[in-house]
Design a protein around this nucleic acid. Structure first.
Lengths: 222, 222
DNA sequence: CTCAAAGATAACGTATTTATTATTGCATTT
DNA sequence: AAATGCAATAATAAATACGTTATCTTTGAG
């Protein structure tokens, strides 16, 4: 067979992640290992391995004799997550500007920006969110620090979870795009300080908006 | 019974960590799951769970049919780790200065500094390293971001691994102490910017020294 | 003598079974 | 009636057994 059959453990991780992000496994709910095994139609062992991995990624909590708990995200959690992203992505932006990248290297970043602008024009929030994710992932990749990539990836997962409920509450993120262009230009120009400071401000602003939104809507979690 | 008997999985994590830090399980070496199970006198299952956890923490790598590989740390890895610590700890310092802590809150930090100074006076490098760890851990704790605490903890683990071979190559870290005092004072004064910038410089300096040291001694890994 | 193929061995991934532990409910005693 | 203790049940933790896959070695043929 040409397709590489991936192991049950791998599949369990993917499936559980997908179900957590989709809300099928809602934040704050408890589930037995055996229940999840039935759901995924495999035995408990690979499920348990997946659960262990996901626990390490902060998506759920393993409570002996109680089952696994899908971790809810409080506004405080979101504030913490945004602070981590702010610091690490700013660093990545600085580094991306320092090491000189040619146009080809920056192509993916440019495309993400274009896609965001197009999404704004057609008020397609889902498409915007997807392109925004790509922008941030690509920025971090250009930063060249694999550990920052890993950590930022986890934190972004959490942001993505929360976005389901917040994306449609907020105004169109038109200002975001100007920030992105500025950061892009700074990277291309090798202006590390601008890249860093501007992206930093961008993230802090995003955090402020989100926290405001959550408290205004009295969203205690998720 | 008053003592909490901890599970085999927990014990496996502790024991493996200790053996990795002590060098008994040396960086770059391969080990079979069954071999580790024999070593810890338990079955493969808890060992495997521990290995999965430690893989998530970046201490080792799981290679199918090859066994677990204790990850070596290259100079590039150390540079990455220091960069993460620089960003996250600086943020913690800034936050620690912002939220006002009374003297009692800062007592542990002060004690760590005193211990470092005493260790310098008696040229006890091990004691200095231990107190330095405490200083950084306490700083991050005062920052109040639990995710930063977790990440910084993991990164510090890695630094600790490398320090075994680097601590005795370097000059006495007398300059470090001045930095620590400055950061401490800034936190007490609520001077967030100084706390942040100073700690940032402190970490960047430490990184530069370490990387220089590693390349000078042609340490490709450890 | 070299290369390829096949078989054997060893290690991991998965499953099943067994044991331990915690919680809940019921009964008994105060 | 309330509290405590015991028993039963349910869920996780651990061990062992099984199957699959990859690698290495050996043998045979070119």
């Amino acid at each position: 067979m040409s397709v590489k059959a991936l192991s049950n453990s791998q599949r369990a991780i993917q499936e559980l992640r997908a179900r957590i992000f989709s809300g099928e496994l809602a934040a704050g709910t408890d589930h037995l290992e055996s229940e999840l095994a039935d759901l995924l139609e495999m035995s408990r062992t690979p499920v348990r391995e997946a659960v262990l991995k996901l626990e390490g990624q902060g998506l759920l909590e393993l409570r002996p004799r109680k089952g696994v708990r899908i971790l809810p995200l409080s506004p405080d959690d979101m504030a913490e997550i945004y602070d981590v992203l702010t610091e690490l992505e700013s660093h990545a932006a600085e580094r991306a500007a320092t090491s000189d990248h040619d146009k080809e290297d920056l192509a993916a970043l440019a495309r993400a920006i274009e896609d965001m602008e197009a999404a704004i024009d057609s008020t397609d929030l889902d498409a915007w969110a997807e392109a925004d994710d790509r922008f941030h992932a690509e920025l971090v990749r250009l930063g060249g620090n694999s550990r920052i990539q890993g950590i930022a990836g986890m934190m972004s997962d959490q942001v993505r979870r929360a976005r389901t409920s917040t994306l449609f509450m907020r105004p169109l993120p038109t200002k975001s795009n100007k920030d992105h262009r500025t950061v892009y230009q700074a990277i291309q120009d090798g202006d590390a300080e601008t890249a860093r400071d501007c992206h930093r401000q961008h993230r802090q602003h995003a955090k402020a908006i989100l926290v405001e939104l959550l408290s205004k809507h009295r969203l205690r979690h998720l």
